[in-house]
Write a protein that binds this DNA or RNA. Sequence first.
DNA 1: TACCCGTGGGG
DNA 2: TCCCCAAGGGT
Length: 386
Amino acid sequence: MGSRVNPSRNKTPLTSPHSSTSPVDNPILPDLPVGEMRSTLQDWYQQQGRKLPWRNHPHPYPIWVSEIMLQQTQVKTVIPYYYRWLEAFPTVEKLAQADQQQVLKVWEGLGYYARGRNLHKAAQKIMQDFGGQFPDTLAKVLTLPGIGRTTAGGILSAAFNQPVSILDGNVKRVLARLTALSVPPRQAVSQLWQLSDRLLDPEQPRDYNQAIMDLGATICTPKNPACLLCPWQQYCQAYHQGIQTQIPMRETKAPLPHKNIGVAVIRNAEDEILIDRRLDEGLLGGLWEFPGGKIEENETIEDCIKREIQEELGIAIAVEDHLITLDHAYTHFRVTLNVYNCRHLEGKPQAIECQEIRWVSLEEIDQFPFPKANSQIIDALRKAQT
DNA sequence: TACCCGTGGGG
DNA sequence: TCCCCAAGGGT
């Protein structure tokens, strides 16, 4: 709690008013023993590095897939998805030929679904523009959707042993502590990239990049870093100052807004259920869902559901009994889903605010990719049926 | 350039 | 229970 910081307070040094360069301007240490640091890190990596499925792979495709899955996602979460993905789409060509719904079904549950859609689009671009070969230059790799500077460096170093630096969450944290960075990393991105460039081992860039990420993931962890086991302990300013748990400094964050949502499970005379496919852009793009919307002030859940279904699908329904209420947290807000069983009364459903609409049975609903919160609704439907 | 974009696990 | 954060990129 003592590490929570108001960023504005850090823009001016509390100390000497005469100092012309604050740590923000120059967090780079003047005399880092770069060669020695590379050597100690590489030695540590040979002994303590993680064995991961995509390491030392001869082909860039599996490495690329792993890099995309690992964006903002922990290794443990990624591994089963990684294997399933390569089974479903063993080559760039197979991925390019798949349709988006297959792709999203395999990605289902992993989150940040634009990653899956971009992987798919990039595979098609590789087939069209690069003759089916994953590109091996930084400029070309950066033209692929879903690949930024860090992911490009990760792929080029791992697949081709090219000396391209990275600045992911692990590296940011390691370098912030190494320099006892006195501002949140976001305010020093340019300087951190310079430091990352400087430290990168030009002789063994593949192992160096993997090593510094392993260091961040297993030793220089966000909480309770294992400084006594760290190969860079002697170079670490945060450790020497005893402030390693306070760095990197955090941004102040506004509390998450909460939305109350009415959700309809609509059945027709054949006992089929109405689902809709969301637009490709934005939250949960391209996934299927049960229709519904935000409950306005002074509106009952029943009124909300009837109104939303009329607006979104152009049909009249009867709202019947309560199925389930569940809470879910997204990155920028929380929701409570109030789910009700409903009956279709009249009108043909139209895709007004979505891409597509289907009447489906509970048996065939598994074929469609749903976001996590909606999967819980499906579970509840199955339970209610038996 | 801030803000948007999921989900699971740890403390 | 709640907050934090994880191999970031797109706009």
